[in-house]
Design a protein around this nucleic acid. Sequence first.
RNA 1: GGGUCCGUGGUGUAGUGGUUAACAUGCCUGCCUGUCACGCAGGAGAUCGGCGGUUCAAGUCCGCUCGGACCCGCCA
Length: 590
Amino acid sequence: MYRNTNCGELSVASASQTVTLAGWVQKRRDLGGVIFIDLRDRSGIIQVVFNPSVSKEAWSKADKVRSEYCLSVTGEVMKRAEEAINPKVKNGDIEVMISDIQVLNTSKTPPFPIEDTIDASEDVRLKYRYLDLRRPEMLNIFKLRSKVTRTLRRFLDDREFLDIETPILTKSTPEGARDYLVPSRVHPGEFYALPQSPQLFKQLLMASGMEKYYQIARCFRDEDLRADRQPEFTQVDIEMSFFEVDKFQAMIEEMLVNLMKEIKGIDIPRPFQRLTYAQAMDLYGSDKPDTRFDLKLIDLTDIAADSTLKVFKEVQERGGQVKALNVKGKASHFSRKQVDEDLKAVVTPYGAKGLAWLKVEENAMKGPIAKFFDEDLTARLRERLNAEAGDLLLFVADKKKIVADSLGALRLHLGKTLGLIDESAFNFLWITEFPLLAYSEEEHRYLAEHHPFTMPFLEDMDKIESDPGSVRAQSYDMVLNGFELGSGSERICNHAMQEKMFKVLGFSEERAEQQFGFLMQAFEYGTPPHGGMALGIDRIVMLLAGCSSLRDTIAFPKTASASDVLTHAPSEVSDAQLNELHLDVATLLK
RNA sequence: GGGUCCGUGGUGUAGUGGUUAACAUGCCUGCCUGUCACGCAGGAGAUCGGCGGUUCAAGUCCGCUCGGACCCGCCA
């Protein structure tokens, strides 16, 4: 027997029991005569004691033991003497007097200590991920993650959603992210793709009469990584037939409220806040705004156009915008240099050519652009911006997209650095009425903003030919604290409508047939109206666990260059393997 | 594809172009029967990511390259 009790379960109530524990050596303290070992398992840490007067044999074995040795020990749980109690530790009033010890495995000295606050770089942690994951902090994230999926499953099971698996080896489709490809041995020159999401299959399951489907699904996208983006990630994917958007969204809200209650013990009020895409872009410069703080974007295009500042006037003439942030009471917080260098640096990557500013004083505004606003205009600025003495006003004038992106990013930067964000808050937010299509400068055509199967607003359909960009989609995103948790939509289930969509997207009839014919055919056999959404599990866990990187929520994540420093994937393969797959990579290896 | 930052004993850091690369921690050895950040004494451990260049002299300056972090593009 390796063990009959977990370290963390022991308390004074266990005193005088004989127990067998198994775990790892957290710390060994050798006082010459007596040896103390902090023994750690998944449940916690307990001090075990080796005294030669109890067992000379156990004591001399313990003398050889080092950090992270894997042990099984047997002994009597003892209440400690008053003066030996350690009040800093949960079970510091007891210890186990060991009579027998078995070394299950030895350990090299670990590259970093197995404890919560470590200073090892993430690089080293990932290389020794199995040691990193021993740290209680990491263990707790994966306990939480497991509870998240369990809670979601239970909720959906209770509502008679069926957990159905869909293929991992699937068909490459042209729209959307870059596919991970898997060469076919049996079909020379042909490839499977790993799914970017189970989208097509879940719609086919609706055509199949499954009515309610969910899956904790792995998704793959071969795009560049970010702190909140991994090449493979997990979604809870949900789809239902006889879909009605308000009922469905209400259920998703219930699901998330239930999740927050179970995981964090927090009651999230319903209904969730809602913004249309247009509102979100206008007020926050983002389609995933962090609404835990205010600091909204304020449109000043009309006032700015009346000023004598040339760039402001020109922007209006070209159909651009001038917008501003009013950073309340922070005029003295930023020096001229800090605004011109630090804050401007936030805004330039998004294409903003400059960051104009004004400091509001009792009877005037100070700053490089102050002279372009006469008394009347200054008064209008004051009113529009609700400006008071001590406020810092920050302006960007440019094309709509640049203004939104740059001020949106600046807003977030200020929120973080000025401590405006209530870190304990969980602000769930629906973003609705996304544009159906977005024009791609690169491809010189419209692309689906969500995906090509999204139902448009029928009342907008008269503009689908004349002004495709203005057509709204029956789609919605769930945003939490500035992160996109997931998105969904009502789907097209009608053959003619789907055909029209592909046409608008610039697909030839043949190409639509070749790529998506199977789905279009399914629509001809009584496919019910349906819709759904998918929520990113990794991001949910990241936010609930308070991690700053998605990597902390994934047991074996990839680095920013999509490689795995533990297994060294990706790696070269043998010529024999390549030959079998009819592949030749020689030209790439110059 | 582009930008910014980082790379020095196991780990984390310091290090004006100039002797034997410093500090903390960890590790090893010895001593120690109530420690829990145990203590005390001693010791080992670095081709300063790699290659090339400048220089009498490079951890330090320059170029390239590899690896990592963050961001832009990209991510239906």
